[in-house]
Nucleic acid binder design. Structure first.
Length: 327
DNA sequence: CTGGTCAAGTGGACCC
DNA sequence: GGGTCCACTTGACCAG
């Protein structure tokens, strides 16, 4: 079926035969691209010609002298015609010259208008349909090449981005471990300073005899100044002089301003944060220490939390603080 | 024998 | 409705 169709549409029965029998006439119509083929003694054969692509380039050879040898214009007889039509039922490659001509046309314009198609077909001795098919296949090949190029380009881009990403990831891990290391150092330093401060405070009452005496005399106990401070914190004193806060080297909790700042200001206000950083910039301590202090300020006073009054406000603070401490 | 390449077939979508 | 384009397929041919 395909063979019949091929045969019907075959240029062998039309243009090829015309080409073969009227080659001299075809060669007389000179077009700009025709100059390529002026040296050829034979006209362009149609698709049924058995011409190797590489013949002109000294490449592979086919046993394709069939038409050239057997179809000599002077000697072709009925036998050769029969052989030709038998052979014509198989696919034939276009000649080198035809392909070169088509390639040049394709470079000029990869689409094919009807007039141009007819002209090219006439120039090459091909069926217009063959020219159209060649352009279709050529566009398909061009598209595949473009896809390959695009793929390579995208692949290169991907590799480049991946390398950058890996480098950034390494840098991130390095910085994370650095932060961790520095945090540990700061924590250790803070602990050490607290201990030394505690020792200092514990030694002070011993040296300050009158104070201790007054305390022990007044309450009849041997409470240290620390216990005295803790005791005072549980007395629903609005001052909340937490001893740990009092020893803080981050914020001066001895100052009345500290509690006020904690309780009255929203920790998420940029102003507040900037205040902290500005006030304590010399301390160079990480934020979590600050929030530890803030939590202490709240939970060290059970009366404050258990109170039904102002719970909403405190709850707001707790959410904020927990969010930050979780961070 | 197998895989690659090329010309051509096929069917659907689109346009005038 | 005919022509064209496109994606996919088929069949011929060749080289390794």
């Amino acid at each position: 079926m395909a063979g019949e169709r091929l045969f019907t549409n075959s240029p062998a029965s039309n243009s090829n035969m015309n080409t073969l029998f009227h080659s001299q006439q075809q060669n007389t119509s000179q077009q700009p691209l025709d100059s390529l083929f002026l040296s050829s003694s034979l006209p362009f054969f149609g698709s049924r010609t058995m011409v190797s692509f590489e013949d002109a380039q000294g490449g592979r050879k086919r046993c394709n002298s069939y038409l050239f040898n057997g179809f000599d214009l002077d000697e072709n007889g009925d036998d050769e015609m029969d052989d030709y039509f038998q052979q014509s039922e198989k696919k034939r490659r276009l000649s080198v010259e035809q392909v070169q001509f088509l390639e040049k046309s394709f470079e000029v314009e990869n689409k094919l208008e009807p007039d141009r198609k007819t002209k090219i077909a006439k120039d090459l001795g091909l069926q217009p349909r063959q020219v159209a098919i060649w352009f279709q296949n050529r566009r398909a090949r061009w598209k595949n090449k473009q896809l390959e190029k695009d793929y390579e380009s995208l692949n290169d881009s991907y590799e480049s981005l991946k390398t950058d990403y890996d480098n950034i990831l390494k840098e991130k891990h390095r910085l994370q471990s650095e932060v961790e290391s520095l945090s540990k150092k700061v924590l250790a330093r803070e602990t050490q300073e607290r201990e030394s401060e505690t020792k200092k405070l514990l030694q002070e009452p011993v040296m300050n005899k009158p104070l201790v005496d007054s305390v022990s005399e007044g309450e009849g106990s041997k409470l240290s100044i620390v216990e005295a401070c803790n005791e005072s914190n549980h007395n629903n004193n609005s001052r909340q002089e937490d001893i740990s806060s009092a020893r803080s080297d981050i914020l001066d909790c001895d100052s009345p301003c500290y509690k006020d700042r904690v309780l009255q200001r929203n920790v998420f206000e940029p102003e507040y944060q900037s205040d902290l950083s500005q006030d304590d910039e010399d301390n160079l301590l990480p934020p979590y220490n600050i929030f530890t202090k803030l939590e202490d300020a709240h939970y060290s006073n059970p009366h404050h939390n258990s109170s039904g009054y102002g719970f909403q406000e405190d709850d707001h603070h707790h959410h904020a603080l927990w969010s930050w401490s979780g961070y």
